[in-house]
Simulated scan of single mutants.
Amino acid sequence: MGTSKGYSGAPSGLVPSWVDDIAPGAAAADGSGGDGPASAPAGDSPRIPAEGPDTSAAGRLSAAKGNFTRFVRHGDTDKLRRAVAQYVRNGTGSSQKAARRMGASRAVGTRLLQVIRDVDRQGAVAALQKLNLQHLANQPAADVFLAMLETICPPGGRIDEAIARQAMLDAIAKLADAGMGAFVQMTGEQLSEFFQSFVINTIDGRVIADIGEHAIDLPESVEDVEHILEQLHEFVSSCVRGHLGDHFDGLSEQSDEQVKGTVERIYVAAFDLVSAMAGDVK
């Protein structure tokens, strides 16, 4: 959403040739239920099954949709702020319920943050070894995250999973545009920034899917649609980026289950921040 494009990857295509070196079955859907990873052969990294989004208290979205449509038609950014705030407060019912709607995004985000934790705890090579990607440690960071994406969120699945996948592709595109060097050289701050980009992009995607899907059909050109998506992205980013740093304190000491809780708190905090920026909205 943030870049309106997916990472193009290596010149030969979206997936670099070395992605074929990933252990067989690493990116396959496990087909099991439950919240945790399914069992997999030793050396493989199972795909984390996405939790379904919470739709039990979706509330009323009409006001949010109306203001988003007015934003699209007239370019009134105040209507955009109101639309997003109404989406969180009225449409989903609360920041906590909005966060629960991010089922696949939280699942992918949990696996991503576990990798970031492992880099801090054990180093890049050891962290990537858990995904059978240790041979890529000295490759460009964007290429490593792309291979990681094919492992933890392969193509296909529900719209919820598509939002998570596109969000990571957009974060990868930003990383590639910035000319980031080798993955092994990334600092903790840079990894945190990448994770925040993923979170922001997933919120963009969820908002569009829930209240903006039909409104973005109104503009007459692709450029106008891209401008609308960029404005949404900039609004969410301005609310969230730089305000989630405290949630990364002590990350290296957290268990997998604790990391999962951290990701949920990050999403709740992000929706709180987005909602608060609009002030008092009915």
Score class of each variant (00 low, 15 high):
residue 1 M to V: 14
residue 7 Y to T: 07
residue 11 P to A: 11
residue 13 G to V: 04
residue 13 G to A: 10
residue 15 V to K: 14
residue 25 G to R: 09
residue 28 A to V: 06
residue 29 A to S: 15
residue 30 D to N: 11
residue 30 D to G: 14
residue 35 D to F: 12
residue 37 P to Y: 06
residue 37 P to G: 07
residue 39 S to A: 13
residue 40 A to I: 05
residue 50 A to Y: 08
residue 51 E to K: 14
residue 53 P to W: 02
residue 55 T to W: 01
residue 60 R to V: 07
residue 61 L to F: 14
residue 64 A to W: 04
residue 65 K to W: 01
residue 66 G to R: 12
residue 67 N to Q: 15
residue 73 R to N: 15
residue 81 R to L: 05
residue 81 R to E: 10
residue 87 Y to W: 15
residue 88 V to G: 09
residue 92 T to Y: 09
residue 94 S to T: 08
residue 94 S to P: 00
residue 101 R to L: 05
residue 104 A to Y: 04
residue 109 G to R: 06
residue 109 G to W: 01
residue 110 T to E: 03
residue 110 T to V: 06
residue 110 T to M: 02
residue 112 L to S: 08
residue 114 Q to R: 14
residue 118 D to N: 12
residue 121 R to S: 07
residue 121 R to Y: 13
residue 121 R to D: 14
residue 121 R to A: 07
residue 122 Q to K: 11
residue 124 A to V: 03
residue 128 L to Y: 03
residue 131 L to Q: 12
residue 131 L to R: 11
residue 132 N to H: 06
residue 134 Q to H: 12
residue 138 N to I: 02
residue 140 P to I: 12
residue 141 A to Q: 02
residue 142 A to P: 11
residue 143 D to F: 03
residue 145 F to D: 02
residue 146 L to V: 01
residue 146 L to S: 12
residue 148 M to N: 14
residue 151 T to V: 15
residue 156 G to V: 09
residue 156 G to A: 15
residue 157 G to P: 01
residue 158 R to I: 08
residue 160 D to G: 05
residue 165 R to F: 02
residue 173 A to E: 13
residue 178 A to L: 02
residue 179 G to P: 00
residue 180 M to P: 09
residue 181 G to R: 08
residue 184 V to C: 04
residue 186 M to C: 15
residue 187 T to R: 06
residue 192 S to P: 06
residue 195 F to E: 07
residue 198 F to I: 10
residue 206 R to W: 08
residue 208 I to H: 09
residue 210 D to L: 06
residue 211 I to D: 09
residue 215 A to Q: 06
residue 216 I to T: 00
residue 219 P to D: 01
residue 222 V to A: 10
residue 223 E to M: 04
residue 224 D to C: 10
residue 231 Q to E: 01
residue 232 L to A: 01
residue 232 L to E: 07
residue 234 E to K: 04
residue 238 S to Q: 02
residue 241 R to H: 14
residue 248 F to M: 00
residue 251 L to H: 06
residue 252 S to K: 11
residue 255 S to I: 08
residue 260 K to Y: 04
residue 260 K to I: 08
residue 262 T to H: 13
residue 262 T to I: 05
residue 263 V to A: 10
residue 264 E to A: 15
residue 270 A to G: 09
residue 272 D to E: 13
residue 273 L to M: 10
residue 273 L to D: 11
residue 278 A to L: 08
residue 281 V to R: 04
